[in-house]
Amino acid sequence: MRLAFILSEIGGGLRRNLSMVVSVILVTFVSLTFVGAAGLLQLQIQQMKGFWYDKVQVAVFLCVSNSTAPSCASGPVTKEQRANIEAMLKSPAVSQYVANYQYESQADALKHFKEQFANSPIVDSVSADQLPESFRINLVNPEKYPIINETFSSTPGVDTVVDQRQLLEKLFTFMNGASLVAVGIAGVMIICAILLIATTIRLSAFSRRRETGIMRLVGASKMVIQLPFILEGVIAAVVGAVLASVTLWAVLRFFVGDTLAQQFKDTPFISSSQVLLVSPLLIGLGVVLAGVSSLLTLRRYLKV
């Protein structure tokens, strides 16, 4: 009975304040879309970093059958060549620059590749023998990359020496900048949303002061009086959060998935299902925003 009563109160309140409720929905929708976009950019950065990025700086790729580098003239790397390269890594001349290194076999490479490109069709057409073995090297001082490059790039059995950081660093700087901008815009919009929710609740409380006055007099509990107002704000914010999630999903599905991923086949992209990681956070944030701002407003404008 009480639940049905509160629900009908909420329904009445939402109808009466429709234009305000719609604006709350839109503002939370826009602000949470920006929050979600920032979150997804970070997920995308993680995806592009792949397995090795945070662990090592330099990759020494060894020859495979279709390598074209002069040092691969003898075909795929042989056991002796690999042993020789590892011995060089351990030699005092090189090891003073190397903090540690790891060997990645072709099987490991395939495993890591599959993780990184999980959302790409490319993953089904790659087999282990197409992927190079590698030594992944963590430098004592990342600035010393040229020394490693010089030492190894002409060694037989080495295809290329790559400083992965340098390749991706600029892109990540750009993407981090973009996330910061998104978070900044989201911050402003969230302030907007909080103020708008507060105003909406104030209006709603004002237009229903007769009802609430009577409720007080006949001894309705604080919860019964305030809950419809709080839930009104929360419902509007949740609708906004759901719209934001749907929008982000659509962007990932149709823009990233169907357009970007087709154009940049060698870049790993996050999939639209990763919105599921972000959207609970958005909905939670919406609920907290609306709940807190309506509680604070009610404390001022709806005496019980």
Partner: peptide, 11 residues
């Protein structure tokens, strides 16, 4: 009835 609803009386 409103006075009874808000204090949770049954229908």
């Amino acid at each position: 009835a409103f006075a009874m609803q808000v204090i949770g009386r049954s229908r």
